[in-house]
Write a protein that binds this DNA or RNA. Structure first.
Lengths: 322, 322
DNA sequence: CTGAAAGCGCTTACAG
DNA sequence: CTGAAAGCGCTTACAG
């Protein structure tokens, strides 16, 4: 186990300076910061203190009960276990205002690094503080936080819409959770707009549905007349399942009367009959990638990177050609 | 922030003895152990060390991606946040052999306490070591670990079976995941046997389905002739959804040809059409209860208790009277 | 089983 | 911005 003294010696500075750099209190020149960080990384120093606590990383996600984030979290934990790091969790419950507090709580555990999924990285208050090495997961990188692991949500929106258009659909409705709670939903919607414009079709007004502990009470209240959409794209699979349930309650069949598609590729979508047509997002693989990137940054002082992981279109049975 | 010195003073012993008691190394008389623990609890002492790390608790569950455990974990985290504790996660992946390692990893973080869901508490190697205050969640208490939060799984198995019998079913099949991976499934099965015996019916041979990353490839391979079951009880909702999908692929309708019921009450079960008939388990409430019990034990030296939380039968549309 | 004391690893005024 | 040094909170041989 490396001590601070060894780090200071290797960095060619005093114990005091090394301590200040690693704890981000007190002043330190850029040069010293680099030297000390590098020495600490080379020695595998963890400021675990006398007590020998295992190093930990903090993970912030909107909700553990959403299978998308549960999948990421699970593979983050598996990757971190191998690396000898504990994983601490925090939830924002899709509320941007809670993100800063959640991250502050995580910082109380002196994590080696953070993996964060926020509602909107450009406005999140959680990203203002000076943080340990941080990887954004499912959010696009910012100037201050250039390390990110994403899938191309806009491209995915474009692709699923183009797929529906290719199946003969023209009146396609985009149904979304609240954009303020998910920049992913917003990006998917923009992809929808792209594809509609490219085909010279008129985009319908987006419907935003506030997420209130699940979508099982969903009431579309849509006039299902000749002007009604022939296809609905839901901004995520849970919402898509809610839509299918709501349509059935209104006496409409899927895909007989209306086609439905989603995003995410949650496991449940394969169980229902017919299986859900969706864009399968590589959540588990993205989680593992984010974990590896964070470890590389924190332990080897590797540079921040933006990694994009490929999605795939899964043709289920909830879309039919017309 | 209380120091060890204050604890030692209050306990009327030396720093050295207080240190030994709280770290469970070195010898200490029973009297001293009690005195020091009590003083530490009264002062709210946390051996966070100079670094002022927040105290943490460790949670072991079979899998984060199972919505049942995700629900418990989420409410544990919410409860612990209020109490100022971090939450560390570990997964066994339903493998009893991995439980001991997972708990050992958690212990590296010096948790204030543990909340554990194991495959079988009577045989789990994770429960042999000397552990900090520990609450079993979803497992029955043992002599050595008398703190537990459970629902009455046997009673639930009895009730759902009795409900099906009341609906006129006689040939009722119990379909289960692997008993070795879940004592809950086994208890539910025993409840099924109870109810069948009480009504003088012959229990059918239980089918055990190994869980391999989801049930979407499920093949029942059942001869659906006149001797086939009229109702199937799946040991959990995910399996029930897999069964419904498999039946539909074989051209059978639910509940037209076969009735299906499950256990757990996962959110998805309300979204499908018809909604799943199931025993709704209070997973979120159980998680919060386990968290509160653990805090009470760790911070107030409260005695270990066994708390049972009530379940409810949710009548969906997947069971019909015959 | 217990305590006095040495000493570890770290932080933090203080001086420059 | 940096370092020498005091000192905090804890652990751990050692002696009894």
């Amino acid at each position: 186990m490396a001590t601070l003294e060894q780090v200071a010696f290797r960095a060619g500075c005093s114990l005091a300076t090394a301590s200040r750099v690693l704890n981000r209190n007190g002043p330190a020149s850029d040069l010293m910061v680099r030297k000390v960080r590098r020495a600490a990384a080379e020695l595998g120093y963890h400021s675990a203190g006398r007590l020998g606590r295992r190093p930990v990383v903090g993970v912030l996600i909107p909700s553990i009960t959403n299978p998308v984030f549960a999948s990421s979290l699970s593979s983050i934990q598996n990757r971190m276990l191998v690396a000898g790091h504990g994983v601490l969790i925090a939830q924002s419950n899709y509320d941007p205002a809670r993100e800063a507090d959640a991250v502050a709580a995580l910082l109380n555990d002196r994590p080696t690094g953070l993996i964060l999924t926020v509602c909107d990285p450009s406005t999140s208050q959680a990203l203002l503080a000076r943080l340990p090495p941080t990887v954004l997961l499912n959010n696009l990188p910012t100037a201050q936080f250039p390390a990110a692991v994403t899938a191309d949500n806009r491209g995915a929106g474009r692709e699923i819409t183009a797929f529906l258009i290719g199946m003969g659909h023209r009146r396609i409705l985009f149904l979304s959770g609240n954009f303020a709670a998910s920049d992913r939903a917003h990006l998917r919607y923009r992809g929808y707009l792209d594809a509609m414009a490219e085909s010279g079709l008129t985009a319908l007004d987006v419907m935003q549905i506030p997420f209130v502990n699940g979508f099982d009470q969903l009431d579309l209240g849509m006039p299902m007349n000749s002007l009604a959409p022939t296809a609905i794209i839901a901004s995520n699979d849970l919402l898509a399942l809610g839509v299918i349930g709501a349509l059935k309650r209104e006496g409409l069949s899927v895909p007989g009367d209306v086609s439905v598609a989603g995003f995410d590729g949650i496991a449940i979508g394969r169980l229902i009959d017919p299986p859900l047509t969706t864009i399968e997002m590589p959540d588990a693989s993205m989680g593992a990638t984010a974990a590896s990137l964070l470890l590389d940054m924190a332990e080897n002082a590797a540079p921040a990177r933006h990694l994009d992981v490929a999605y795939t279109l899964r043709r289920g049975g909830t879309v039919r050609a017309i």
